[in-house]
Amino acid sequence: MSFDVLEKLEAKVQVAVDSIELLRMEIDELKEQNSKLNDENGRLVQEQQAWQERLKALLGRIEDVHAE
């Protein structure tokens, strides 16, 4: 194997290692973003449930008034 071929192989390996490092960093960032979005989603689901309960209560009061 010539020295030239070995240098080209080494350069390709280094590019691959650099790419893997960048992808790992991106994965970490996406995991963090996903965690934040999951937290926000949970908060919004709770808020939606609270609004639904309030709406049900109001509709129940309207039905009570109609029944009288």
Rank of each mutant, 00 (worst) to 15 (best):
L23Q: 13
V15Q: 14
G60E: 07
H66A: 13
W51K: 15
E26H: 05
K8R: 15
E53Q: 15
M1N: 03
G42I: 00
A11Q: 09
Q49I: 09
S19N: 12
Q14C: 03
E63M: 03
E26L: 06
S19K: 14
S35D: 06
D64Y: 07
L44G: 03
D18C: 02
E26W: 01
Q48T: 14
I20P: 01
L9S: 07
Q52W: 10
D39M: 12
F3V: 07
E53I: 10
K12M: 09
Q49S: 11
W51Y: 14
D4S: 11
I62R: 02
A67R: 13
V15D: 14
S2C: 07
R43C: 02
A16F: 06
D39H: 05
E26F: 00
R43S: 05
R43H: 09
Q49M: 11
E7D: 07
R61E: 08
V17M: 10
L23M: 10
E32D: 09
L9H: 05
E21A: 10
K56N: 14
R54N: 14
A50G: 09
V17K: 14
Q49N: 15
R61N: 02
A67Q: 12
D64V: 04
A11K: 13
K31Q: 09
E21K: 15
K8A: 11
D28Q: 12
E7G: 01
E63A: 08
E32Y: 04
E32R: 13
K31E: 12
V65F: 10
S35G: 05
D18T: 06
K36R: 15
E26A: 08
Q52R: 14
R24Y: 04
A67C: 01
V5M: 07
R61L: 03
R43F: 10
L30C: 01
D39S: 08
R61G: 00
D18G: 02
W51I: 15
E40P: 01
L6N: 03
D28N: 11
Q52A: 15
K56C: 06
S19F: 02
A50T: 13
V13I: 12
I62A: 04
D28E: 14
L23P: 00
E53L: 11
V45D: 09
L6Q: 09
L44S: 03
I20C: 05
E32A: 14
N41E: 08
K36I: 04
K36F: 03
L23Y: 02
R24A: 12
A57S: 09
V5Q: 09
L58A: 04
E26K: 11
V15C: 04
H66T: 08
E26G: 01
R24M: 14
A50K: 15
L9K: 08
A16L: 12
L55N: 11
L22M: 07
Q14N: 07
K36H: 08
G60P: 00
R61K: 06
L59R: 07
I62F: 02
R24N: 14
K56P: 02
L55T: 10
D64M: 06
V65W: 09
L37S: 04
K8W: 02
E7W: 01
W51E: 15
Q48G: 05
R54C: 08
L44N: 02
K56T: 15
E68F: 11
